[in-house]
Design a protein around this nucleic acid. Sequence first.
DNA 1: GCCTGAAATTGGAGCGCTCTATTTTGAATT
DNA 2: AATTCAAAATAGAGCGCTCCAATTTCAGGC
Lengths: 342, 342
Amino acid sequence: MEDVAERAKVSRALVSLVMNNSPQVSDEKRESVLRAAEELGYRPNLAARQLAKRRTQTIGVLVDDLRNPFFGEVVDGIEAEAADHGFTALILNGHRDARREVDAVETFLQLRVEGMALVGARLTDDDMARVGTATPCVMVASGTVHPGTDTVGTDDRRGAELAVEHLAALGHTRIVHIDGGDNVSAAERRAGYESGMRAAGIGELIDVRPAGDDEADALAVIDALLAQKDPPTAIFAFNDLLAAGALNRLADAGMAVPGDVSLVGFDNTFISALRHLSLTTINQPKLAMGRLAVGTLLERLSDGSGEPIRHTLKPELVVRGTTGPPSNGSCRPGAASGPLGT
Amino acid sequence: MEDVAERAKVSRALVSLVMNNSPQVSDEKRESVLRAAEELGYRPNLAARQLAKRRTQTIGVLVDDLRNPFFGEVVDGIEAEAADHGFTALILNGHRDARREVDAVETFLQLRVEGMALVGARLTDDDMARVGTATPCVMVASGTVHPGTDTVGTDDRRGAELAVEHLAALGHTRIVHIDGGDNVSAAERRAGYESGMRAAGIGELIDVRPAGDDEADALAVIDALLAQKDPPTAIFAFNDLLAAGALNRLADAGMAVPGDVSLVGFDNTFISALRHLSLTTINQPKLAMGRLAVGTLLERLSDGSGEPIRHTLKPELVVRGTTGPPSNGSCRPGAASGPLGT
DNA sequence: GCCTGAAATTGGAGCGCTCTATTTTGAATT
DNA sequence: AATTCAAAATAGAGCGCTCCAATTTCAGGC
């Protein structure tokens, strides 16, 4: 910077003004500074600028797992909104590990990010307590809900109801739910399934089967369901991955989907759109969630403390190829039409 | 920091020593500093530290598309290796857009990262020229190869040969390649397909069908193949996504996989492992690529300039459920056994 | 020609840290 | 008690920038 100033025959302060394109600079000087900067390959040092400005214009994004495309889309939304407001989004990876998430948050704090978005994070309340005070912080699509922290998520309960309503409208009654474990989202979806069943007048048929959040967890559940005398005609899975696992096992067993069994997932990740799976599912507005997360952060930044903000977005039913009317009780194993079979 | 020093009744310099856990500090003072820091909630300011140290201990990771799980795994490797060497990996998202990638690189340079890993980047030579001089930089799994830049990638040609060898060994001769467009990887895989065919003594049957790099691009190709009098008994697709598209269309047409047609993908992304697809594919060692990328960067950092380093990793055949011996010419549409059919 | 005030420019302090050189401490040696 | 020397602690400059207050420049009006 010193060199640029010298070369352009101006003061360092003027160079600073130009680099921040202040309107207070005459065109003549501005140009000569820019030229000098260009010739010298000068690039402002962000660390120094942040230090002097006492602002970083940066938000930290902690992602639970970079390999999960669901999170990728949420982050896309965060970045877009951050950029619109002149912020840079720095991404750190939690690797599905609370300890590493704590490290990442610590790094963000040392970097003096002005806010943090924790996407799918699995931090405990203790961790949050240490964090929350220092810097605005919003949890996005998180499996846990912390008392004092802002959150952005989808209305999981309503989403589940949509799934059940869709199946009930098709004529299904024996609808089973494959449960996603002990996180908050799973609990909400389970509750939605149950209220949906009751609303459809088939509350006595409620049947929840516990599983994890991974594809493989669905297999045993399907086996058990097929072994019973009155197998369900429809299955609502906690998420797309689970549904994919179920779909496979059903095909193995010679069950046609949706001919013999209908199947609904959750999330609308791109795998559900893979034409070979073509899963009917519940969409989460991932991009909107990302944008809203940043919006929430900015709000916090300007108005300071207050009640925790809770944004709950509307889920949507996406009908694809795995749902249809129930067969008339006649199970025809072997007559497999693929999930997309016309 | 000032406050911490005062509270612990030591100088600022001593606090600095403690925070960098220098061995030159007496246990007594160290403890009292740490206690003071704890009580005050002190956290070193990374920007200030970087400025003073004239080092950032940071590498920038530019990812072409966060929604692609392939890149996610590569980044996992990068982060792991970076952490092992005391570096923090900052991730920025290119959004499949060269212009935004340039911005990201600019940001990295202003942040004074000590090196950059460009994962799947699509920057032009011009862009690279502006960058390469300033900071060490390695291209990972990139669609383009730049003359003066280090690279880490998979031996795409060999990978394609593996695919063809596998199919030929099963007895296939009419093996078609669905091409992935005009990037370097696609060209290499095409070349490998061709040399593999020649090596198997079936060079005259080489048949390359152009497509894009997306699932949907495969559909028309499959339709065309099935319409011809002598349809192929095996297909080798540029990547898993294309293969997924092909798989679906084949199922639509009532073709059994692998009964009537065998199918091989490339990348071994997690979608190929989805049990419902169960794609035979070629693995790229994603984690190793990530680690090696950082290794290359560190090497550059210590030894300065020299010949560009080119790391080419070994691909591996992953046999799953979409390949088998060719049928004896008898096409039996309708007798669909799923891709996993026992 | 002098005064006024807005616009353009500049000097210099300070952001929070590290690092070198220097001073202080305190135990061991004579 | 004086001397030595390593270990422990500190003072102070400086990293590259911004920003405030102060200064200079330059019209226009009298």
